[in-house]
Design a protein around this nucleic acid. Structure first.
Length: 279
DNA sequence: ATTTGCTGCAAATATGGAGA
DNA sequence: TCTCCATATTTGCAGCAAAT
């Protein structure tokens, strides 16, 4: 809806000029000066291509011809996955948005949740030696702040024991941010052991938000609702509706990408519906 | 000499369709 | 629905380019 000057946007998934300015400065910070051969391709184009893929869910090979070669785009995608650039981009954007909303860059409250994602239909076909044993689909954990911004993503094979998974996610959260004092979670994370572990390890309270059968509606589970909304937003990126990625880290990148896109929209005020719900 | 960017090749793996 | 097979896609890697 931005009646921005000129359509520098060929596809709806392309980033606007305003958004690009923000991303560009973050990139300069995250990937500073290097020796070696200088880049000859256009960063913005590459990013647009990656966002296109993230949104539409098309295979790499099917990237439209007016983007740089899919090979090149894929090269950067893998690189940025390996060096955590996409993750850091998401973090930087989240800090910016929170500042804009007059909050501290790092939150003190967080909400955790998970979601199962289908792998391939022929999941039974034990596809051999990949160490990650990616059979039977994957599980996505996300931790968000009270505004619904994604803090941490973790993807792993779905057959992992839940308690173990929870520890790993929370450990990751504190690796990134130390400011969190309270985490809300659903029944899947219940268990005195875990709660105690979190408190001892990180001086943080893990609160289980229980479903109350008597009451319904959004009053009941206010914190949970925030994370559900984030999942719903993320689900609009088709690349996330199934797990196409071969490696879990690649899968995480796709989530960070979708999340970064949302954060950008909000930072640039491009009409985000803050209060849905009430109806 | 060393670092990073980019491309082409081919092995590894996924997808889709036929046939039972 | 399941298995098998042919074809398509992804990815790791080698190798050359362009910079300090």
């Amino acid at each position: 809806m931005t009646s921005k000057k000129e359509s520098s946007q060929k596809y709806p998934s392309d980033i606007s000029d305003e958004e690009w300015e923000i991303v560009e400065s973050i990139f300069e910070e995250l990937e500073p000066y290097t020796t070696g051969r200088p880049r000859s391709s256009d960063l913005r184009e590459i990013l647009n291509a990656i966002f296109y893929l993230n949104k539409t869910g098309c295979p790499w090979r099917y990237l439209p011809n007016d983007f740089p070669s899919y090979k090149l785009v894929n090269y950067y995608y893998n690189k940025w996955t390996d060096n955590k650039l996409l993750e850091n981009l998401n973090t930087a954007l989240r800090e910016q948005l929170r500042k804009k909303k007059d909050r501290k860059p790092d939150p003190t409250g967080a909400i955790i949740d998970s979601q199962s994602v289908k792998g391939t239909p022929e999941s039974r076909r034990a596809s051999g030696f990949d160490g990650g044993k990616l059979v039977k689909g994957r599980k996505r954990h996300i931790v968000v702040d009270t505004m619904g911004c994604v803090l941490v993503v973790w993807v792993h094979a779905a057959n992992m024991f839940d308690g173990t998974a929870a520890r790993e996610v929370i450990a990751r959260l504190f690796l990134l941010i130390q400011s969190v004092k309270i985490i809300w979670a659903d029944g899947a994370y219940a268990g005195a052991e875990l709660i105690e572990w979190v408190f001892k390890q990180f001086a943080c309270t893990l609160t289980i938000v229980k479903k109350q059968t008597g009451r319904q509606g959004f009053h009941v589970l206010p914190r949970r609702w925030v994370v559900e909304r984030t999942f719903a937003w993320l689900g609009r990126s088709r690349r996330l509706s199934k797990d196409y990625e071969r490696k879990p880290t690649s899968s995480e990148s796709q989530v960070y990408l979708a999340s970064s896109r949302l954060l950008l929209r909000q930072i640039c005020n491009n009409q985000i519906h803050y209060k849905l719900a009430t109806s």
